[in-house]
């Protein structure tokens, strides 16, 4: 397992945001966390990145206990996140934002860096057109592309994507999910949080369904997508 979450509990004040969650992410796979708003999906990702304090339980990455590691230390180990709500730096240009993504890399002057940048621009040609534009002046969809591109620039071993399809036009949603598959095929392990369950399950090796802070179902993407109760609750009956 590349990532192992065991018995994780996180509180916001007195409120339990997630309760006794355990799951693993195998290297080279796409794993999804599916659930309604407020189920604790984003909190789980934030906790894996170190932005939320753990009340109980452990997080292990590549065999090392990172439960109490600081956020930047986790980035150095190879965990990169494209946060919900995008989190682009509004006062920086597209190029500067992408460069921030590569903040922990030592090879920022090299050809490898340049080719990673080109890969992001291949995936999102719109970003290339706007490379000198301030991120704060771009549309929501463009900022979403930027956030994903920026997370890729870190060359992570584990990419955490928080609602990458949120607020995007249907055509772009298709494109984003195609890109997720592409990134995965190029060797990056992906942990995906999505409300768009149909798309996420189709692309995932494994998936877990969260309800009010607990995992209620787990299985392969294919199994869950075919399950009647999952269909009824999350897929609007059609898949």
């Amino acid at each position: 397992m590349l990532l192992e979450v065991d018995g994780l509990c996180v509180n916001y004040g007195h409120i339990e945001a997630i309760r006794d969650i355990s799951f693993g992410v195998e290297e080279g796979t796409v794993t999804s966390l599916i659930g309604a708003n407020g189920a604790g999906k984003s909190t789980t990702l934030k906790t894996i990145s170190g932005l939320r304090k753990v009340r109980a339980g452990t997080i292990t990455f590549d065999g090392k206990d990172i439960t109490h590691a600081r956020p930047f230390e986790r980035v150095l180990m190879g965990i990169s996140q494209s946060p919900e709500g995008r989190g682009c730096f509004p006062g920086m240009t597209v190029l500067e934002n992408l460069d921030m993504g590569a903040f922990v890399r030592k090879d920022r002057k090299s050809a490898a860096y340049r080719s990673d940048l080109d890969r992001v621009f291949d995936l999102f040609p719109r970003l290339k057109e706007r490379e000198r534009q301030a991120a704060g002046s771009m549309s929501g969809g463009e900022q979403q592309m930027l956030a994903i591109g920026r997370a890729l620039m870190a060359k992570p071993r584990l990419l955490l994507l928080d609602e990458p399809s949120m607020g995007l036009a249907p055509k772009l949603i298709q494109q984003i999910f195609t890109i997720v598959t592409e990134i995965n095929q190029q060797g990056t392990t992906v942990l995906l949080v999505e409300q768009n369950a149909a798309q996420a399950l189709k692309r995932s090796d494994n998936a877990h369904i969260l309800e009010t802070g607990e995992i209620v179902r787990s299985g392969t993407g294919h199994e869950l997508a075919g399950d009647d109760s999952v269909k009824a609750a999350y897929l609007g009956g059609d898949l």
Binding site: S49, G50, L51, P71, F72, V75, L76, S80, Q81, P83, G87, C88, F89, P90, G91, M92, E96, D99, M100, G101, F103, V104, R150, A154
Partner: peptide
């Protein structure tokens, strides 16, 4: 650039390392 990142969005800056 790290300083500017923290100034603009501390949480996102932490996610960049």
């Amino acid at each position: 650039r790290g300083i500017r990142a923290v100034a603009q969005d501390p949480e996102a800056a932490a996610l960049m390392g």
